[in-house]
Amino acid sequence: MKFRGLRLLAAVGAAYALFYLFNVDKTVLALHKSGAVLAKILPIFLLVIGFTALINYLLKPKEIASHLGEGSGVKGWAIALTAGIISHGPMYAWYPMVEDLKRHGLKNGLIATFFYARSIKIPLLPIMIDYFGFAFTAILTFYILAASVIQGLLIDWLCRKCND
């Protein structure tokens, strides 16, 4: 198995070592905070593994491409928007699934749409309404949905050679 990001991990380890030399307490606190983040997103990883396995089990690569590939049309945008809105946890937790789907034909525009639509957090909507009002939340949500699709279309146009 080929591990990805070993150099990045080494660089972050070196950064911790450097910070440790200057501020032991804060660096230990940073390590604790990282541990807390990891513990919090472990269930998301299980979800990602489950989703990826289910998709690969239930859909053939050709079917994935027809739902999320170049010719997916309105259905593809609707799936990307819905998936973005209902997905939980940080963006990077979803990279393994996105990479897997991309190998099976997921188009770049839908990835951009999925990532931007993730800014709509359904469980947090009542809190947003409480802080900023219903009208603000409704208008912002509408514009986020529109911006997600526009970004996807622009990425598809800009990224014609991104996979080269």
Partner: peptide, 27 residues
């Protein structure tokens, strides 16, 4: 399919741990 998905996540773990490490530093 489950094993393949798990291997995909495990192979990406160093990168995800690096990002989580950065999150701790930034926070």
């Amino acid at each position: 399919a489950l094993k393949q998905a798990m291997m995909g996540l495990v192979s990406m773990m160093p990168m995800i741990l690096a990002v989580i490490g950065l999150v701790g530093l930034f926070q």
